[in-house]
Nucleic acid binder design. Structure first.
Length: 585
RNA sequence: GCCCCUGUAGCUCAGUCCGGAUAGAGCAGCGGACUUCUAAUCCGCUGGCCGCAGGUUCGAAUCCUGCCGGGGGCGCCA
């Protein structure tokens, strides 16, 4: 099953072959303002053949007329301008396509032919630090991609590469000992991780004695000292609890099962160095073990090394990232690895991938992709900060979202009960935050703006959710009237497109599979957002112009089917973005 | 200095991968539409040297080159 434009593309392949005299000519079917779609291939082919474009266009039309497969698909085909072919689908073709997706729980989306094993690395907060706005995009984008890839039939493994290892843990553990475990457990369970971290940091900066203890403690941690490990686990456990609170409030897929922190890769670090040495990639430079990566230079124009073992002997994140690649490819059997990591890491990741390729750990068909993203900015176009000047805390962000949305819901729909209202407020508030993040191209920075994201006008989650809620309202009423809220096969048989709004909406509904495919081809959730917004606009226009419940029986049945499909598509699409669709707002 | 990302309407953004017709939305502004399924909406209007300059092409926001503005990165933090 494919949307009409994709369907026409494949129908036209033999036509183009006949006209151009060779196979594999793209018919260049594109959405059009002048018709349902336009075929642009005539101009290019005409040039190759040295013939007038309109003549070639006419020949394409002749071939289409002669093609049995094309019968009944088009209501009209017209040559326009220099040689464009404007096409209009026949209503019969659209209706029969709609009937197919109306009975399809997958809404016309076929699973991929060859599923990949995909590891998605996202979220990655730091132990003993509170999650803040800097973790928003990776968490929201990674989660949306995970949902989409799973739906397409891929085997998706989530990995939360938490920062649970490194030199800060010496001071954190010493500070934990100073305060007493019970005291710390009580404090941290209240969620004040940042306070704890800052106290430790201040002590570290102000006391030589504390610094010495901290450094010694790092050595103990790295050597696997039992008591130190126990204290470390205590900190990790308390932090994990905090992460889970945030994930739960946000509604993301991540659980403890997905934790794959830096600590996990420590036992593999020596192994990485050995294998790099064996591969002849290891060099010594200024006391450190490094790999020089072709194509990368430093400030002075000299070859830029990736340091894999520090002069003092320790490993760093380059080493653990390499260990990670090995683990994902060789143990997990991944053939696609997505790194949902901020744009500033671009060079680092390129170097890690390049080294992994040089070492032979990463080679086709196995693929590593940096799903990079820009920053979240405040109204001043600088990194979003709270009043105190620190990055805005995630927990505060979500509380404020629900509270602002709650005010709006209370104002617009005062009849709702308190419990129902708070549930809706959560869906709308969290949805708004997620959607505003997902709806702009991830490579760009975006400005975080409460008023805009919570507005019910424009390309926002509330607008899409509202469209969905209005449809649910229609079904509540129709159910009250006839006692059935389910779409029947008989109703699907009544399907007809009698107005321009119904027709436009039908085209939109049929485009869902290709919207999803486009989205995943570049791992760009904003493409799905753009599609869903446009679908909502088509629906509200339909809603204004086409009465459903008061229409004559056959029309009413048909429109109920269209409403049902629209609601399912909106709910499903938003679901893939991790956004809920309440039935009332 | 080198590398990466980015520049489209007053504002926020699609469109750039894969070149096609007078460059699209939304917000804001102006003008209309509520005895009717949620007006949290809809309909219309106004608004653009697509950063600049060359080049390729029948055709460039889209491809190529150079420049300018903004952001980021460039050896032992992760």
């Amino acid at each position: 099953m494919a949307d009409p434009i994709t369907a026409v593309e494949s129908l036209l392949l033999p036509v183009m072959e006949a006209v151009a005299g060779r196979a594999g000519v793209d018919p260049v079917v594109r959405p059009s303002e002048h018709a349902d779609a336009q075929i642009n291939a005539a101009l290019g082919v005409a040039k190759q053949l040295g013939r007038p474009p309109r003549e070639v266009a006419q020949e394409i039309l002749d071939q289409i007329a002669a093609s049995p497969a094309c019968q009944g698909v088009f209501a009209s085909l017209e040559i326009a301008g220099p040689g464009f072919i404007n096409l209009v689908f026949s209503d019969e073709f659209l209706v029969s396509s709609l009937r197919e997706i109306a009975v399809d729980p997958r809404l016309g989306v076929t699973p991929v032919a060859s599923a990949r094993r995909v590891v998605i690395d996202y979220s990655a907060p730091n132990v003993a630090k509170e999650m803040h706005v800097g973790h928003l995009r990776t968490t929201v984008i990674g989660d949306a991609l995970a949902r989409m890839l799973r739906f397409m039939g891929h085997e998706v493994i989530l990995e939360n590469h938490v920062g649970d290892w490194g030199t800060p843990f010496g001071m954190l553990i010493e500070h934990l000992i100073d305060l007493g475990e019970d005291q710390v457990a009580a404090e941290l369970s209240l969620g004040d991780l940042d306070g704890f971290y800052k106290q430790a940091r201040n002590k570290f900066d102000g006391s030589d004695e504390f610094q010495d203890r901290s450094r010694h403690r790092v050595v103990l941690l790295q050597s696997g000292d039992a008591e130190t490990t126990r204290l470390w686990k205590l900190l990790v456990g308390l932090s994990t609890k905090h992460f889970n609170t945030v994930y739960d409030a946000l509604g993301v897929l991540l659980t403890d099962d997905d934790l794959a922190g830096e600590s996990m890769y420590q036992p593999l670090m020596g192994h990485v160095i050995t294998r790099l040495a064996t591969a002849g990639l290891l060099n010594e430079s200024e006391g450190a073990d490094v790999v020089f990566v072709p194509g990368f230079t430093n400030r002075e124009g000299d070859p830029l090394p990736l340091i894999v073992q520090k002069g003092a002997g320790g490993f760093n994140y380059a080493t653990s990232d390499l260990a990670c690649v090995i683990d994902r490819v060789e143990r997990l059997g991944a053939d696609l690895m997505l790194y949902v990591v901020g744009a500033p890491q671009q060079q680092h990741l390129s170097m890690v991938f390049a080294v992994a390729e040089l070492a032979g750990w990463l080679s086709p068909p196995v693929e590593a992709v940096h799903v990079s993203f820009g920053s979240v900015l405040g109204p001043d176009r600088k990194m979003l900060k709270s009043r105190s000047g620190d990055p805005m805390k995630f927990a505060d962000l979500l509380t404020e979202a629900a509270s602002r949305a709650g005010d709006a819901v209370a104002a617009k729909n005062p009849d709702l009960g308190a419990e129902q209202r708070s549930e809706i407020a959560r869906a709308v508030g969290i949805g708004a935050v997620k959607y505003s993040d997902l709806s702009t191209d991830r490579v760009r920075d975006y400005v975080f703006d409460w008023d805009r994201m919570l507005s019910f006008d424009g390309n926002t989650a509330p607008y899409l959710q509202y469209a969905h809620a209005r449809i649910c309202s229609i079904f509540r009423r129709s159910q009250a009237a006839d006692g059935s809220g389910e779409i029947s096969l008989a109703e699907i048989q009544q399907l007809a497109l009698t107005t321009p709004q119904e027709r436009a909406l039908a085209l939109g509904l049929l485009a869902y599979p290709s919207a999803l495919a486009d989205t995943l081809s570049t791992y760009s959730p904003h493409k799905l957002c753009t599609y869903l917004f446009s679908l909502s606009q088509l629906f509200t226009s339909f809603y204004e112009h086409c009465p459903v419940l008061n229409a004559p029986a056959e029309v009413r049945s048909s429109r109920l089917v269209i409403c049902d499909l629209t609601a399912r598509t909106l709910s499903h699409g938003l679901g893939l973005l991790g956004i809920d669709t309440p039935e009332q707002m």
